[in-house]
């Protein structure tokens, strides 16, 4: 990824995190989530769970933009890592915008759009051509844009809006650029299983 694009993404993340921080001052609670996931290269919606398992972990923070009895719009930021066997490991950071609707029996459905920055590193020795000779060098990684679309279903343990929630998330995402002039982008899916919970602030409203 060129420097301009990389700079653009970083700027976007800074703005996103700043907004999240600003919102947090106006909110009485922050929702945190942690999920374990199985990452794969796949065409979205043609596969659900794939093998071999390429494990990953993600933590995220969310703030409600507005909240109604049966739904909420939210924004958030996430940080994650995955390990794709024999190929690459990736560290990523990004921002999300989503909407969740909740039924009277505690089942929820959500959709999220995300945009992030991914940095991947080879999981085995990398050899770099220098002056016509391949030499083993430390992998400095490859930067990518990481747009994503996630569909999620969950279950709230209690009726109140601060209840903890278990969820399953089907995330489709792109790795771009992947291999310029060869494979322009790579399609991935990540199947998350996680838990979301609220951290209440000690305010007068509580």
């Amino acid at each position: 990824m060129n420097n301009a694009a990389s700079s653009h993404i970083r700027s976007l993340l800074v703005v996103s995190l700043a907004c999240t921080s600003a919102f947090s001052k106006a909110q009485d609670s922050l929702r945190l989530s942690i999920s374990l996931f199985n990452q794969s290269t796949a065409i979205p919606y043609t596969r659900f769970f794939t093998t071999p398992v390429h494990p990953g972990i993600q933590v995220a923070a969310e703030l409600d933009l507005n909240e109604r009895p049966r739904g909420r719009a939210f924004t958030g930021a996430h940080l994650g890592y995955f390990f794709h066997n024999h190929l690459a490991q990736g560290f990523y950071i990004g921002a999300d915008l989503g909407y969740e609707t909740r039924t009277t029996i505690g089942i929820s459905f959500a959709g999220m759009l995300g945009l992030g920055y991914l940095r991947t590193y080879a999981t085995k020795p990398e050899f770099i051509l220098q002056n016509g000779i391949y030499q083993q060098e430390r992998d400095r990684g490859n930067g990518r844009i990481m747009p994503s679309l996630s569909l999620e279903t969950g279950y709230y343990l209690r009726p109140d809006r601060h209840s903890s929630q278990f969820f399953i998330r089907y995330q489709s995402w792109l790795e771009y650029p992947y291999s310029p002039g060869f494979i322009e982008l790579m399609s991935h899916i990540s199947l998350h299983v996680g838990v979301r919970f609220s951290i209440r602030r000690n305010t007068a409203t509580q």
């Binding site: 024999h86 190929l87 990398e126 050899f127 770099i128 051509l129 391949y134 291999s179 002039g181």
Partner: peptide, 17 residues
């Protein structure tokens, strides 16, 4: 065997791929 998967002449071994 080696692959230049990212088109940058940084290669990894692929003998078992």
């Amino acid at each position: 065997g080696y692959v230049d998967l990212y088109s940058n002449l940084n290669v990894i071994e692929s003998t078992y791929y």
